[in-house]
Design a binder for these strands. Structure first.
Ligand SMILES: [Mn+2]
Ligand SMILES: [Mn+2]
Ligand SMILES: [Mn+2]
Ligand SMILES: [Mn+2]
Lengths: 226, 226
DNA sequence: TTATCTATTTTATTAAAACAAAAAAAATCA
DNA sequence: TGATTTTTTTTGTTTTAATAAAATAGATAA
């Protein structure tokens, strides 16, 4: 508990990125593979193998050779601390500096490594204790607690029900600009009219106004609740 | 001119710190020595010799072996770009996140390396285009222009004249907390009552209220105009 | 003008983070 | 099961930034 108070200054920029990546890849539950990490960090499996050993020694991940890794409690705390910073900075950029939601992720990737607990807690207060970032992702509180909304991808949602957009993946600016164009935002109401079996594309009504066809890959990246 | 528009992403964290340090050490006019840089960056002369060669190759400094270095035009642009970021972030921390002026420098040392011209220009606007940072230092504008106030150290100021505090050095938090305690701030009125020749300490009146004795080293770090 | 001292540079090592190529283990296929 | 393919790890290099120790240039002092 008190560990989260620290700034974790004994972790390098690179180590933090690995921990954060393992956290995100773990969200599906299973152990994370070397190649998955390499793909995500745009590096090579050989580099990942090296770093994994170091992180295991530092006790932030559990590692069994050839079996993949998962975060220890300590590792998860570090990951949540980085995620908290990332998302609060994204809110700041959108709410205060007039950034569009497709422009914040890259800068937040840098800002998330700035070490100052004090600054982040003050920033959170300054922003009015936001619960979600501009892409609908929940912001861990100062104790590292995070509250997930049970949502599913639009691609797996039922037909002919009123759905609400909870979050969208923030990594790809092109997707976000596309959503701007078609008028999908956090909180938008969607209703699936038809699922085209041939290519899994989806025809839907947006906010009771426009009818649109979106591809499977777009639908995979929009999380909704009904 | 257009170079300042760039984010200079081809410079590492370490290189940026060297360029900024050389900029600050150059303010006295002369070439900067290897040891001076090493002292400032808390590293060793051997490391500085290495880095100096690299920076000379990158054409951001002029370097003659055994003679010291100075910034090229390009180097000065980079330095001013970093200084601009540092000082705007310091204003943000004090004005928006309720930091005291002794708490901002360390965090700004990290924030100054974040690469996003867009963010800094927006931040400047958000802060209302401040001209000075919390320690009274001028903030370079988006073209990299900086306006110096011709001030001198309190230790070299004349006796029995009304002086105004223009800036104080921001590197040492202890000094800043001491100034808080004795009631010296940017804009304070000072009047030197007596200079004690024995140890160069100075007796002064602060804002027409308190009489105080401050040491030479404190007086060296307060810049005033009359 | 030497001799001595100090500042600077060079050389050789180290640590972090990455990569390619080779080796080994695990998974898949026949 | 045995052969083949894929994934992961190991080994050997590279680059960046730092250090200590040795060599050298410059400054100072006798
Ligand atoms: Mn993001
Ligand atoms: Mn986000
Ligand atoms: Mn500062
Ligand atoms: Mn300052």
């Amino acid at each position: 508990m008190d560990n989260f108070e620290l700034n974790y200054s004994n972790f390098s920029h690179a180590e933090e990125n690995y921990v954060k990546t393992i956290y995100h890849l773990s969200e599906k539950g299973e152990d994370v593979s070397t190649t998955a990490i390499a793909d995500e960090l745009k590096t090579k499996p050989a580099s990942v193998s090296d770093m994994i050993k170091k992180l295991a020694q530092k006790k932030v991940i559990n590692y069994v050779k050839y079996k993949g890794v998962n975060l220890t409690e300590e590792g998860e705390k570090i990951a949540l601390w980085i995620v908290r910073k990332h998302r609060l900075w994204e809110v700041f950029l959108v709410e205060k500096l007039k950034f569009n939601w497709d422009e914040v992720h890259e800068v937040a990737e840098q800002l998330e490594h700035i070490k100052s607990k004090r600054m982040i807690d003050q920033l959170e207060e300054f922003l009015g204790f936001p619960k979600f970032d501009p892409h609908g992702d929940p912001i861990p509180d100062k104790e590292g607690k995070i509250h997930f909304i049970p949502a599913k991808p639009l691609s797996e949602a039922p037909i002919a029900k009123t759905l609400k957009v909870v979050s969208v993946s923030d990594g790809n600016p092109e997707l976000l600009r596309y959503l701007d164009k078609v008028g999908v935002a956090i909180g938008s109401q969607l209703e699936i009219v038809e699922k085209i079996a041939f290519d899994d594309s989806i025809e839907l009504i947006i906010d009771d106004r426009d009818t649109r066809l979106v591809s499977k890959i777009v639908a995979d990246n929009i999380l909704v609740v009904d």
